[in-house]
């Protein structure tokens, strides 16, 4: 089955990104396809390459980058939401790309299920 996922909150402050990550990983393990992960609202902050958590904490950003690399995931950051919050190509972590809101709608159309994680 084709899933799409939306994340509306940034890393660390809320559990949304963690829950979404574990959901995606479990879906991939079960042989499902993750059609796209779309980052919206403060969720765009999940794509910041400037993120530097303490060493004994999980690195939410690199974890997404790694999952994207391993499974060829399409991690899309909303351009309008990103510009509002200072996320641009210069500080975009590997595996993420910045694009329009149309990518969210398209994911909703193409995927069998769209799951939203937020506050």
């Amino acid at each position: 089955m084709k899933f799409a996922v939306t994340i509306n909150e940034g890393p660390y402050q809320h559990q949304a990104s963690d829950s979404a990550y574990l959901f995606c990983r479990a879906a991939l393990e079960k042989g499902h396809e993750i059609r796209r992960v779309f980052f919206y609202n403060d969720g765009v902050n999940n794509a910041s390459s400037l993120t530097e958590p303490p060493q004994d904490d999980r690195n939410i950003v690199t974890r997404w980058s790694k999952l994207a690399e391993d499974h060829k995931l399409d991690l899309v950051v909303c351009v309008a939401a990103a510009l509002r919050r200072g996320i641009r190509d210069e500080n975009l972590a590997p595996g993420f790309r910045i694009s329009g809101l149309g990518q969210l709608v398209e994911a909703g159309i193409e995927a069998d299920r769209l799951v939203t994680f937020g506050d």
Partner: peptide, 20 residues
Amino acid sequence: VDYGGFVDLVAEHKNCQSWL
């Protein structure tokens, strides 16, 4: 359920709504 069960629940139902 675990995360795998979460995935199954999403797959088994026609649609889902997150009450944020």
